[in-house]
């Protein structure tokens, strides 16, 4: 497997605080890759650099063979990286369907084509029946799914998921896990996720990277990582691994 996303020694400093410290990893084409770590470890900062919210202070990010670090978010998305936000940000006054149409219009010029595509995506995420509702009227689990649907509608090669499981009940979580597995299996979608919920991470990820104080302290298969003494000491020790 070749790498779709290559992060090479990137760093980011905020007012003297080193949020991400010379971090490197590769996300293989078609893989599901998870980044875990305690709060403040630099996970969202990492995402924001990949998604173009801000540029890294140093290092390189390569996507599908091309440098993308420093590009603006819209350009990054146009290259094929879709993202969700940890704190969901749907377009509140628009209907669920219109929210997704905005994403679908990235590679479609006619609204009718985009609507058809949006409806496909909505079906996949169990939101089809709610498509006429205003996004602001959705419950949190539905909003999380809408966030995924909107990003998926842009036909990304790589999907960045920022804690989509947080705040969900176990059954809702299982449903999203199976949706994501299905997407990965059927469409070959590569997924990079930040996640706190170890249950979901263990079920989904082919590879895990553990971030601590902005640096990688372990990387490998889920089984390797959970047995790593450094990981247990700094992170897992306090949490429920099962």
């Amino acid at each position: 497997m070749s790498a779709l996303l290559k992060v090479d020694g990137i760093s980011k400093r905020f007012r003297g605080l080193l949020a991400v410290d010379r971090l490197s990893f590769e996300v293989p084409q078609g893989g599901i890759f998870a980044v875990i770590g305690p709060n403040g470890a630099g996970k969202t900062t990492l995402f924001n650099m990949i998604a173009g919210v801000f540029a890294p202070d140093g290092g390189a990010i390569t996507f599908a063979g091309e440098r993308i670090d420093g590009l603006k978010p819209d350009k990054i998305c146009q290259r094929g990286i879709g993202r969700t936000y940890q704190i969901v940000r749907p377009f509140p006054a628009l209907s669920v369907e219109d929210n997704v149409i905005v994403g679908a219009l990235l590679h479609r010029h006619h609204v009718s084509d985009a609507r058809a595509h949006a409806q496909d995506v909505l079906r996949r995420l169990d939101l089809y029946d709610k498509r006429a509702q205003r996004a602001s009227s959705l419950t949190l689990p539905d909003r999380k799914r809408l966030e995924v649907a909107r990003a998926l509608a842009t036909d990304p090669k790589l999907l960045l998921l920022d804690e989509v499981m947080a705040g969900l009940r176990p059954t809702e979580m299982d449903r999203i896990v199976s949706i994501l597995q299905e997407l990965n299996r059927e469409t070959g979608l590569t997924i990079l996720l930040i996640e706190h919920v170890m249950r979901a991470v263990m079920a989904l990820a082919g590879q895990i990277l553990v971030l601590h104080h902005g640096a990688s302290i372990a990387q490998g298969s889920p089984q390797q990582v959970v047995r790593d003494p450094a990981v247990i000491h700094s992170y897992l020790g306090a949490e429920d691994v099962a």
Partner: peptide, 14 residues
Amino acid sequence: LAVREDQEAALSLG
């Protein structure tokens, strides 16, 4: 509409 509702989210959708 996307820009009006949330410009940052709109940008992240390309």
